[in-house]
């Protein structure tokens, strides 16, 4: 239990710093911004209570905001993502439910389960984030393209990370 908590605290710090100092400085054609830090919400244990999930989402988003001068923007998107996570998990649950002691990883539930689960969460986060950032519908398709391309890139990074860092 303590081990899980410590591991998650370490993960949130590493992910925020990685996002702020490395990924935020990368742009591909000024169009694609990967937001890899959402991996933190994705990997939280199944048993995380709802209030903790939402609060952690808020804290995660706010710490990204502090570093990128966008108060509230990332926080609103991560809270939204944390809100729909239980519903998404419920939808993709195996017939017997999730086994205690397992975590949402490829190792336990397979590639296709993980891919679908992650894709829906990332898409919802990026949709929320980019449309709140632009906050108008006039450039709808331009923003839409940014959402899709950035989501694809984030998804790619998340899947890759599963094979390099979280093999187990």
């Amino acid at each position: 239990m303590i081990k899980v908590i410590l591991r998650n605290i370490l993960r949130i710090i590493v992910l925020v710093l990685f996002q702020v100092y490395i990924l935020n400085n990368i742009q591909i054609s000024g169009f694609v911004n990967p937001y890899f830090y959402v991996l933190f919400i994705i990997l939280l244990p199944f048993e995380t209570p709802g209030w903790l999930l939402l609060s952690l989402g808020f804290v995660l988003g706010l710490s990204i905001d502090l570093f990128s001068n966008t108060p509230g923007l990332h926080a609103s998107a991560t809270v939204f993502m944390a809100f729909i996570r239980p519903a998404v998990l419920g939808y993709f649950a195996p017939r017997d439910g999730y086994v205690t002691g397992t975590f949402p990883r490829i190792y336990y539930y397979g590639f296709s389960w993980f891919f679908q689960y992650v894709a829906i969460l990332i898409l919802s986060h990026h949709f929320f984030l980019f449309y709140i950032e632009v906050f108008r519908l006039s450039d709808f398709f331009h923003t839409f393209a940014r959402v899709i391309l950035s989501s694809a890139f984030t998804l790619f990074l998340v899947m890759i990370s599963q094979y390099f860092i979280y093999r187990r």
């Binding site: 709802g50 939402l54 905001d65 509230g72 923007l73 926080a75 809100f83 709140i132």
Partner: peptide, 17 residues
């Protein structure tokens, strides 16, 4: 409590925005 906390936090974030 889950939905209410969501509304609370989301409102806070949007007010900030």
């Amino acid at each position: 409590h889950f939905a209410l906390l969501f509304i609370l936090l989301e409102t806070t974030a949007l007010v900030l925005v």
